[in-house]
Protein backbone atom coordinates (compact mmCIF):
# COMPACT_ATOMS: atom_id res chain seq x y z
CA UNK A 1 0.00 0.00 0.00
CA UNK A 2 1.10 3.50 -0.50
CA UNK A 3 0.49 6.66 1.40
CA UNK A 4 -2.62 8.53 0.32
CA UNK A 5 -0.50 11.56 1.21
CA UNK A 6 2.03 10.73 -1.51
CA UNK A 7 5.12 8.54 -1.68
CA UNK A 8 5.34 5.09 -0.18
CA UNK A 9 7.46 5.81 2.86
CA UNK A 10 6.74 2.48 4.50
CA UNK A 11 9.60 0.64 6.15
CA UNK A 12 9.20 -2.93 7.37
CA UNK A 13 8.17 -1.71 10.83
CA UNK A 14 5.35 0.44 9.51
CA UNK A 15 4.28 -2.19 7.02
CA UNK A 16 4.04 -4.63 9.91
CA UNK A 17 1.93 -2.22 11.94
CA UNK A 18 -0.30 -1.49 8.96
CA UNK A 19 -1.00 -5.16 8.29
CA UNK A 20 -1.50 -5.92 11.99
CA UNK A 21 -3.84 -2.96 12.52
CA UNK A 22 -5.99 -3.82 9.51
CA UNK A 23 -6.14 -7.46 10.58
CA UNK A 24 -7.03 -6.64 14.18
CA UNK A 25 -9.71 -4.16 13.17
CA UNK A 26 -11.44 -6.92 11.19
CA UNK A 27 -10.87 -9.60 13.84
CA UNK A 28 -12.16 -7.33 16.63
CA UNK A 29 -15.31 -6.63 14.62
CA UNK A 30 -16.02 -10.30 13.89
CA UNK A 31 -19.11 -10.42 16.12
CA UNK A 32 -20.51 -7.25 14.62
CA UNK A 33 -19.92 -8.50 11.06
CA UNK A 34 -21.55 -11.81 11.90
CA UNK A 35 -24.57 -10.04 13.39
CA UNK A 36 -24.94 -7.90 10.26
CA UNK A 37 -24.65 -10.97 8.07
CA UNK A 38 -27.08 -12.95 10.24
CA UNK A 39 -29.69 -10.25 9.57
CA UNK A 40 -29.51 -10.44 5.78
CA UNK A 41 -27.25 -13.35 4.82
CA UNK A 42 -25.91 -16.63 6.15
CA UNK A 43 -24.25 -15.17 9.24
CA UNK A 44 -20.71 -16.31 8.57
CA UNK A 45 -19.00 -13.11 7.40
CA UNK A 46 -17.40 -12.34 10.78
CA UNK A 47 -16.04 -15.83 11.34
CA UNK A 48 -14.84 -16.13 7.75
CA UNK A 49 -13.03 -12.80 7.77
CA UNK A 50 -11.59 -13.51 11.20
CA UNK A 51 -10.15 -16.80 9.96
CA UNK A 52 -8.59 -15.02 6.98
CA UNK A 53 -6.99 -12.25 8.97
CA UNK A 54 -5.77 -14.60 11.68
CA UNK A 55 -3.95 -16.48 8.93
CA UNK A 56 -2.42 -13.17 7.84
CA UNK A 57 -1.33 -12.34 11.39
CA UNK A 58 0.26 -15.77 11.67
CA UNK A 59 2.45 -14.87 8.70
CA UNK A 60 3.19 -11.31 9.79
CA UNK A 61 6.98 -11.59 9.82
CA UNK A 62 7.24 -12.82 6.25
CA UNK A 63 4.55 -10.45 4.96
CA UNK A 64 6.16 -7.37 6.54
CA UNK A 65 9.38 -7.94 4.63
CA UNK A 66 7.71 -8.05 1.22
CA UNK A 67 7.62 -5.25 -1.34
CA UNK A 68 4.12 -3.81 -1.90
CA UNK A 69 3.05 -5.86 -4.94
CA UNK A 70 4.28 -9.14 -3.47
CA UNK A 71 2.59 -8.30 -0.17
CA UNK A 72 -0.75 -7.67 -1.89
CA UNK A 73 -0.42 -10.89 -3.85
CA UNK A 74 0.31 -12.86 -0.67
CA UNK A 75 -2.62 -11.27 1.16
CA UNK A 76 -4.94 -11.98 -1.77
CA UNK A 77 -3.85 -15.61 -1.95
CA UNK A 78 -4.22 -16.01 1.81
CA UNK A 79 -7.71 -14.51 1.91
CA UNK A 80 -8.75 -16.54 -1.11
CA UNK A 81 -7.68 -19.80 0.48
CA UNK A 82 -8.83 -19.19 4.05
CA UNK A 83 -11.92 -16.95 4.03
CA UNK A 84 -14.13 -19.05 1.75
CA UNK A 85 -17.43 -18.05 0.26
CA UNK A 86 -18.09 -15.06 -1.94
CA UNK A 87 -16.20 -12.64 0.30
CA UNK A 88 -13.01 -14.73 0.08
CA UNK A 89 -13.16 -14.66 -3.71
CA UNK A 90 -14.07 -10.95 -3.78
CA UNK A 91 -11.36 -9.77 -1.38
CA UNK A 92 -8.95 -12.24 -2.95
CA UNK A 93 -9.66 -10.77 -6.37
CA UNK A 94 -9.23 -7.26 -4.98
CA UNK A 95 -5.76 -7.88 -3.58
CA UNK A 96 -4.59 -10.02 -6.50
CA UNK A 97 -5.59 -7.26 -8.94
CA UNK A 98 -3.91 -4.67 -6.71
CA UNK A 99 -0.73 -6.76 -6.76
CA UNK A 100 -0.81 -6.89 -10.54
CA UNK A 101 -1.13 -3.12 -10.99
CA UNK A 102 0.91 -1.75 -8.09
CA UNK A 103 4.52 -0.80 -8.86
CA UNK A 104 7.24 -1.67 -6.31
CA UNK A 105 7.53 2.00 -5.41
CA UNK A 106 4.11 3.41 -6.04
CA UNK A 107 3.35 7.09 -6.33
CA UNK A 108 0.01 8.37 -5.20
CA UNK A 109 -1.19 8.39 -8.81
CA UNK A 110 -0.06 4.84 -9.53
CA UNK A 111 -1.52 3.62 -6.22
CA UNK A 112 -4.85 5.25 -7.02
CA UNK A 113 -4.81 3.68 -10.48
CA UNK A 114 -4.01 0.26 -8.97
CA UNK A 115 -6.83 0.71 -6.45
CA UNK A 116 -9.12 1.44 -9.39
CA UNK A 117 -8.06 -1.79 -11.12
CA UNK A 118 -8.68 -3.69 -7.89
CA UNK A 119 -12.19 -2.23 -7.59
CA UNK A 120 -12.84 -3.20 -11.21
CA UNK A 121 -11.78 -6.76 -10.37
CA UNK A 122 -14.39 -6.84 -7.59
CA UNK A 123 -17.00 -5.48 -10.03
CA UNK A 124 -16.20 -8.25 -12.48
CA UNK A 125 -16.00 -11.03 -9.87
CA UNK A 126 -19.26 -10.04 -8.21
CA UNK A 127 -21.00 -9.02 -11.47
CA UNK A 128 -22.12 -6.00 -9.52
CA UNK A 129 -21.76 -2.24 -9.38
CA UNK A 130 -22.44 0.75 -7.15
CA UNK A 131 -25.80 0.91 -5.38
CA UNK A 132 -26.51 -2.83 -5.00
CA UNK A 133 -25.83 -3.09 -1.27
CA UNK A 134 -22.38 -4.66 -1.52
CA UNK A 135 -18.77 -3.81 -0.64
CA UNK A 136 -18.64 -1.88 -3.92
CA UNK A 137 -20.84 0.79 -2.34
CA UNK A 138 -17.82 1.60 -0.15
CA UNK A 139 -14.97 0.79 -2.53
CA UNK A 140 -16.26 2.89 -5.43
CA UNK A 141 -16.69 6.23 -3.58
CA UNK A 142 -13.36 5.69 -1.80
CA UNK A 143 -11.68 5.08 -5.14
CA UNK A 144 -13.19 8.27 -6.53
CA UNK A 145 -11.89 10.36 -3.63
CA UNK A 146 -8.50 8.65 -3.67
CA UNK A 147 -8.17 9.32 -7.41
CA UNK A 148 -9.23 12.96 -7.19
CA UNK A 149 -6.85 13.97 -4.42
CA UNK A 150 -8.91 13.65 -1.23
CA UNK A 151 -6.92 13.32 2.00
CA UNK A 152 -7.13 10.50 4.55
CA UNK A 153 -9.74 12.37 6.58
CA UNK A 154 -12.01 12.66 3.56
CA UNK A 155 -11.46 9.02 2.64
CA UNK A 156 -12.23 7.74 6.15
CA UNK A 157 -15.34 9.81 6.36
CA UNK A 158 -16.54 8.72 2.93
CA UNK A 159 -15.97 5.03 3.76
CA UNK A 160 -17.94 5.24 6.99
CA UNK A 161 -20.81 7.16 5.40
CA UNK A 162 -20.87 4.86 2.40
CA UNK A 163 -21.24 1.77 4.60
CA UNK A 164 -24.10 3.43 6.49
CA UNK A 165 -25.69 4.41 3.20
CA UNK A 166 -26.19 0.70 2.39
CA UNK A 167 -28.77 0.45 5.22
CA UNK A 168 -31.83 1.65 3.25
CA UNK A 169 -30.85 -0.11 0.00
CA UNK A 170 -32.81 -3.08 -1.32
CA UNK A 171 -30.34 -5.91 -1.93
CA UNK A 172 -30.27 -7.32 -5.45
CA UNK A 173 -26.99 -9.26 -5.13
CA UNK A 174 -25.84 -12.13 -3.00
CA UNK A 175 -27.78 -14.01 -0.36
CA UNK A 176 -29.40 -10.80 0.91
CA UNK A 177 -31.32 -10.51 -2.37
CA UNK A 178 -33.40 -13.57 -1.36
CA UNK A 179 -34.91 -11.43 1.38
CA UNK A 180 -36.23 -8.80 -1.03
CA UNK A 181 -37.82 -5.92 0.89
CA UNK A 182 -36.64 -7.40 4.20
CA UNK A 183 -33.05 -6.60 3.25
CA UNK A 184 -33.91 -2.92 3.72
CA UNK A 185 -32.87 -1.48 7.08
CA UNK A 186 -29.65 -3.47 7.56
CA UNK A 187 -26.08 -2.43 6.78
CA UNK A 188 -24.32 -4.66 4.27
CA UNK A 189 -21.65 -6.72 6.08
CA UNK A 190 -19.25 -6.58 3.13
CA UNK A 191 -19.58 -2.80 2.97
CA UNK A 192 -18.87 -2.69 6.70
CA UNK A 193 -15.78 -4.91 6.51
CA UNK A 194 -14.45 -2.84 3.59
CA UNK A 195 -15.01 0.37 5.55
CA UNK A 196 -13.23 -1.10 8.58
CA UNK A 197 -10.15 -1.98 6.54
CA UNK A 198 -10.06 1.40 4.83
CA UNK A 199 -10.40 3.11 8.21
CA UNK A 200 -7.48 1.15 9.64
CA UNK A 201 -5.32 1.92 6.60
CA UNK A 202 -6.15 5.64 6.75
CA UNK A 203 -5.44 5.72 10.50
CA UNK A 204 -1.97 4.44 9.75
CA UNK A 205 -1.29 7.04 7.08
CA UNK A 206 -2.79 9.82 9.18
CA UNK A 207 -0.25 9.16 11.95
CA UNK A 208 2.51 11.55 11.00
Amino acid sequence: MTSPGGGTGLDAGRTRKLIADVARSVIDAADELTALDAAIGDGDHGENMKRGFEAILADLDALSAMPAPELCRAIGAKLLSTVGGASGALYGSFFLALAKSLPVEPSRASAAAAFGDAVDAVRARGKSDFGEKTMLDVLIPVQRIFATGGDVVAIRQAARKAAEATIPILATRGRASFLGERSIGHMDPGARSSALMIDAICAQFGEE
Binding site: D42, D44, E47, R51, S81, G84, G85, G88, A89, G92
Partner: peptide, 12 residues
Protein backbone atom coordinates in the same frame (compact mmCIF):
# COMPACT_ATOMS: atom_id res chain seq x y z
CA UNK B 1 -17.85 -26.69 3.00
CA UNK B 2 -15.67 -23.70 3.76
CA UNK B 3 -11.93 -23.89 4.57
CA UNK B 4 -12.77 -24.47 8.26
CA UNK B 5 -15.17 -27.32 7.50
CA UNK B 6 -18.39 -25.36 8.14
CA UNK B 7 -21.09 -24.62 5.60
CA UNK B 8 -19.65 -22.62 2.74
CA UNK B 9 -17.32 -23.04 -0.20
CA UNK B 10 -13.58 -23.15 -0.63
CA UNK B 11 -11.65 -21.93 -3.66
CA UNK B 12 -8.88 -24.45 -3.04
Amino acid sequence: GNPAGGLGTSYE
